[in-house]
Design a protein around this nucleic acid. Structure first.
Lengths: 225, 225
DNA sequence: CCTACCGATCGGTAGG
DNA sequence: CCTACCGATCGGTAGG
């Protein structure tokens, strides 16, 4: 599905203008002849920023093009539709979040307590929601329904894996008696509480992401002071 | 602001066709000559439903008109713009929610505990989010930024009053040691958890709003089993 | 409320 | 990537 929603890298390369004289080593990139995959990346980043700021429907492909100094038709050289650009933002954001979450858990000592594991999961989730890369996951959270059914299905798969990491941790805390609510419902409430933080958290405020994590744990888990 | 955003009732009445012969008692309403304020109400309800279902930008005034059997220009007889319709949905939804919240608290015995007060607040909030009138508050939550600055300011005032009712309750629980997190941050997290429930709660599922309320209290408040 | 319409915007494309 | 464009959609209006 991601193949058909975006121009493949091969097709893109094939339509390039005739190659410059062969040259050894890494090719020089001028401002005009930029590496295409980098330009594509810039489009995804700018789209993420504007989709988050103004919403998908309220953002025009012209807005995105102009922000990168392109003309209005140029984004369609890289993406076959506005929706394919949204899909790229969401899919790449989710895959990045899943990967960094997995890495965060791997650096934990194997005997880490369920509480410590939850702390890492919550801290990481704040990172993707509120940290430097914050434009991606909120777009997934709020523009989900604008995807095609196929796009939604593909994103749902990644999301399921992401959330699955939380299940044993919450189950364990429930067994320890430190989480009284049903773990399944608790997980949904907790994701809601965290996800919503994008609506009110100010990165320049007094609260650090570490402090925010501590507050969340104080609220959700008993006896962790 | 609400005066200038919508046609006033007076101006609307003045542009009606010549009055029918004077008649005693309540005037009969045919399908064609409906009470204008009722038709206005239907527009607000239908707009709320579609704005929630598809989003404000993705809903056209034609969609709303068609759902009520009107022609495309007719909504503009009642509202001067699509944005005025959004404002009406959000403002009326918030005012209704504030009123029912106040009423819910008033029927509590005066010596009710902070926990009982929180239970009422949470249960009521689920009611406006997930109950029969569920189309209004979610539109406020997710379409807020589409309002004019003046509209946002007016809605923010009502929202502040709504949220202010939670402050002493959470402060009290904090003093009792049953809410360990900072009450201010806790309130934001709790609203997030509840507000997000609209994303996953299925009204036809196994979980009632009462059961959902109990789960929320188990998650947020210590020692309430 | 309907009829009949307009002006602007926007996603997208052909062709180089 | 740009140029030059189009076709559809949509909010909104005049006039009755």
């Amino acid at each position: 599905m991601s193949r058909s929603a975006e121009q493949s890298a091969g097709a893109t390369a094939a339509s390039k203008p005739p190659a410059a004289p062969v040259r050894r080593g890494r090719p020089r990139k001028t401002a005009q002849q930029r590496d295409e995959s980098q330009r594509r990346t810039e489009l995804v980043r700018e789209a993420a920023r504007l989709f988050r700021l103004k919403g998908y429907d309220a953002t025009t492909t012209r807005d995105i093009a102009a922000a990168l100094g392109m003309h209005s038709g140029s984004p369609f050289y890289y993406f076959e539709s506005k929706n394919a650009l949204l899909f790229a933002v969401i899919r790449e954001g989710m895959e990045h979040a899943l990967q960094t979450q997995t890495e965060s858990l791997q650096v934990l000592p194997s005997q880490a307590s369920a509480l410590e594991q939850l702390r890492v999961l919550v801290r990481h989730h704040f990172e993707v929601l509120l940290g430097p890369e914050r434009d991606f996951i909120p777009v997934m959270l709020y523009e989900w329904r604008a995807l095609t059914p196929e796009g939604r299905a593909e994103v749902a798969k990644i999301k399921d894996v992401y959330e699955a990491a939380w299940v044993p941790v919450l189950d364990s805390l429930h067994r320890q008696g430190r989480l009284k609510a049903c773990p399944k419902v608790a997980r949904l409430f907790i994701f809601g509480a965290l996800n919503w933080s994008g609506q009110w958290f100010k990165a320049d405020g007094r609260l650090s992401l570490d402090a925010l994590t501590e507050q969340a744990l104080l609220l959700f888990v008993e006896g962790d002071s």
